[in-house]
Structure formats: structure tokens, C-alpha cells
Design a binder for these strands. Sequence first.
RNA 1: GCCAUUGUAGCUCAGAGGUAGAGCGCUUCCUUGGUAAGGAAGAGGACACGAGUUCAAUUCUCGUCAAUGGCUCCA
Length: 539
Amino acid sequence: MDFGDYEISEADLRKIEDKMLELAKEKQVFQRREVPKKEALEYYKNKGDQYKVELINELEDGKISFYQSGYFTDLCRGPHIPHTGFIKAVKLTNIAGAYWRGDENNKQMTRIYGITFPKKKELDEYLEMLEEAKKRDHRKLGKELEIFTFSPKVGAGLPLWLPKGAQLRERLEQYLKKVQKEAGYEPVISPHIGDVDLYKTSGHYEKYGKDSFKPIETPVKDEEYFLKPMNCPHHCEIYKHKPRSYRDLPVRYAEFGTVYRYEQSGELHGLTRARGFTQDDAHIFCTPDQVKDEFKGVMDIVMRIFKALDFNDFVTQISLRDPNKPEDYIGSDDNWDKAEHAIMEVAKERELNYEVEYGEAAFYGPKMDFMVKDALGRSWQLGTIQVDYNLPDRFDLKYVGDDNQEHRPVMIHRAPFGSMERFVAVLLEHTAGKFPLWLIPDQVIILPISEKYQKYAENILSLLKNYDIRAQIDNRSEKTSRKIRDAEVKHIPYMLIVGEQEQADKTVSVRKQGEGDKGSMGMEEFALKIKKETEGVMS
RNA sequence: GCCAUUGUAGCUCAGAGGUAGAGCGCUUCCUUGGUAAGGAAGAGGACACGAGUUCAAUUCUCGUCAAUGGCUCCA
């Protein structure tokens, strides 16, 4: 709504809510009526409502309907509820600016968000659900579990990983490195900055140079460096450092590459949208014929990882060309067909549930993305696999084929997690902080019943350490029930309660978080049990 | 970047034009307790930052920064 000069604020919401409920009680009837275009235009021109006039002008005559209730008439396609008496509970939730017709270049209007239910109880339930969702917010959990923090002094959107978070992230990275090694990837390392020329070649400078961190100047005139927003240009140069034969392909370069992008200030959102983040990036350089197998290989990695993390709640989106606009894309038709078919076939062979979006492909190639929802239902892109015909051209990448002629390789960009930041954020929200045992920073806490068993607790701790099990001792002077409660609240998966009995028998009394007492067992036996529960992922 | 809201102790929050308060956490002491909160005492705060109004500002006004909810954007 365009309120003109009036500045509406949240204080007004209460008043509007009251008025709404008042009108609701009157059971005002909504009456629909078809209106000829001419009459509709006339009506809104007289009212001086330029917005409705604009909308009506674009509507087809004969398909225009008005709704009337009391003396208020509105243009609306409908349908409406029969009368206002159906409204029993109203909550106006927030005020926000929204651009007219969603275009940044248009005037910004005021949008008031609200929700209504036929029963008061349902509204209360909805509000409660929102409260619950907030508890799973990764920004809240990340703070509580000491995974990450931000400091305005370091800069907005630049996450600081705390020891527990760094530990967790490192474990994820090690796991992926192991998987990638098995899949024939070679680690490479590239610097955080690159000559602007690199990004002029890649095309990123032209496209994003203005909206990004400004280039870094040096004492040398006209010499400029750019914080890297992408790893691919660097990897292209690595590919180019020597001549390639078709026998060398595919070449797979992997790097946990930290990149920096100047996201708009209003877009920053915890770890899901940051200005500095680390992609679990890799680039595959292959022949057009190898695209399908390589794509399949990448998808297998993605599925393997999601499975290891018990991560089932995602949507696969395949983005292809708009068949009506072939001129919007670079690369030969033949190659596009090959790549698009390859992607579709792989998706079918792997029996994925997927959605196909035509026209959503990048101008340089088709892609497959893995989307997930956060606690509040907002959608984020995690993993991505993209075929690219553009960069090999721009960087003039080549290989010599079996015909002794030079050919252009195809590039596949891929990041199974997307970025470590976003993935950890989503994992936090999906697990509500209860990470799988192999990942969670604190796996076990030892709870001695009194100081007398401190020594025995330390023995257990060093035994567990020998098995690479992450454990701590709670040696505060508190009652056992208190220590248990605190460990439960912190979601530490295993609690080992030790007292006189355990010390005498060389056992531990095991309690599982969320499940309760599991009885006692030998300490060695417990260590082996944990080992068994975590094996298969890291080993 | 735009619109709205918010910024007080490590965390969650209360407060008021006259130099700050609770719960949890933390420290110390008492307690040595067997499966979800034992007791007592204590420490901890340029009330985000900068300007203005005022005898007096943490409180009012403006600006900056940051955060939150949207819009737009996302290589």
C-alpha cells in the first residue's frame, strides 16, 4: 500500500487488528461482480488509484472482477470468503517495505503482513509453532553450542569459528577429503586474491566488479588485485600450467576455497548468507563424452554424504535451457543436448526425486542443485553441480585428442556442501544441534558421583582418548542429578556415571541423551561400542 | 541497498530525565550427593558508538554501526 507521507509503524498494527475484528463481527458480505474493462478503468481513474489503473490496463477485458463489502470495493481475482464473520483471530505480524511489482526500480510501498485463522486456538498454535522454530535457528544454536560468532569489529557477515565449530567443520572437511580422494580428486591450493586481469578474463569483473569488494591497490601504478569471489579462475590457470592430452582427462581439482562476496547489508543472515565463506569446491575438466560419467560420479558423492549425515530432507532441482531462447546460451547445441541428456539420465538412473526448471540454467551450462529448507521454511541452496562451456572458452583451455587436434574441454563446477558455513547452519537446524555421533564436538561426558572417584574418571578419560573418543569430566561439586541435567540440556550423547560400584568393577554406568539409563558395562567395552557406532563414516 | 523494529551483565530480559536491576551462568565456601536444577556469599555493566537538547541523558532528538523481519539481489 502507498500511504503517501504517513509513516505507519508497528504501533498502528494494534489499532488495525481491533478494527478488523470489529468489522469481522459485522459479518459483512463480500460480493463479487464482473466488470467491463472500461468501467473498471473509469472507476479507478476517478479514485486516482494509479496502481490499479496500471494493473487493469494489463488485464483482459471480460476477466475483471471486483469485490465489494460495505462501501469498500476492490479489484481482485478472488475468491473471497463469503462474509467477514469467518474471521475469528487476526495477528498482524510485521511491516516491511516492498517494491511495487517486485521491481527494485519501482517505488517502495508499505506491506503489512498478517495471518488469520477461523479459530483463536489455531492462531495460538501457529504462533507457538513459530516460537518452536526460532529455537532451532542456527544463529541461536550456533551461539549456545559455541559453534561460531560474529564481531562488528571484524565485520558484518564475516563469521568467526569458535573451537567447537572449527573442530566440527574440520571433521566434515576431512570426511569429504577422504571421499574425494577415493573418487580421484587431487587437492590444489590457490591464494585468496588474484590479479584483476584474471577476473576480467573470467568475466566476473565485468558482471560483478561494481557490486563487490573494491580491488586492492598496490604501490605499483595500475596494479590491482581482487579478493577472490570464485575459485574457478584460479583452477583454470592450474589446468593451463602444462599441455594436456585426452589421456590426462578427466582432471579433478579440489580445494576448500574461501571466497569473498559483498552481499547487500540487508541480505546477511548468520552462516547461511555471509560475505566470506568457504566452498567445498572442485572443478572437473573433461571431454564432452565424459560429462555423463563425471556427473554421475559427483552425484554419488553428494548422495553418499547426505546419507552419512542422515540428511534426507532436500529437493533436487535440475535447471535446463529455455528451449525457446537458444540465443541466450553459449556453447554448441550438440554439447548442450549431450549435457542435458546426461543430467536427466543420471537423475533417472539414480532414482532421484527431482524437479526440472526450464530456463533456469546458467547462460554457460545446465546445472543440478540441492535445495533445503531452514527452520522457518526458507529455502536455501546447498550442493550444486554445474556444467560450464563458458570458462574453458574464456581461458582458452585445450587438450589434444586422439586425432592429434586441439579440443576444448568441458568444465564441471561442483560443491556437495555448497559452503561449509551454509551447510553447518542447515545441519544445525535440521538436527536441532544434536549432530550425529561422529561429528558432534563432545561425544561423552564422565560424571563422577563424588570427588572420591575423580581419579577413576581420569582413567576412563585417558582410555577414551586412546580410542580417539572426545570426552570430558564434569568434576564440579554438584549432585549427580544436576550433572545429568546439565549434560542432557547440552545434548551430550553419552553420560558415564561412575561411583563406588563402577570403580570396584572397572565398569561405567551408561546413560544415553534423551533415552535414559542403559545399564553398566566395562569401560573397554563402552569404548568399542562408540567406535563401532562411528565407524564407516570416518574410517 | 530499501522499509520497519531492536541494541542494558557471558545468556534471557525488566527499568526509568537525577550516574542501574532480576533469573540463569561464573568465582569462593559449605555440602560428597546414584540417573533432569542442594545451600550461602561474591565478582561482573563508559546502558552499541558519536553529536545535539537539558542544571542533569543510559532514558528525549539526530546521525553512525550492528542485529532482527520483509523487499530486491545472490558468480
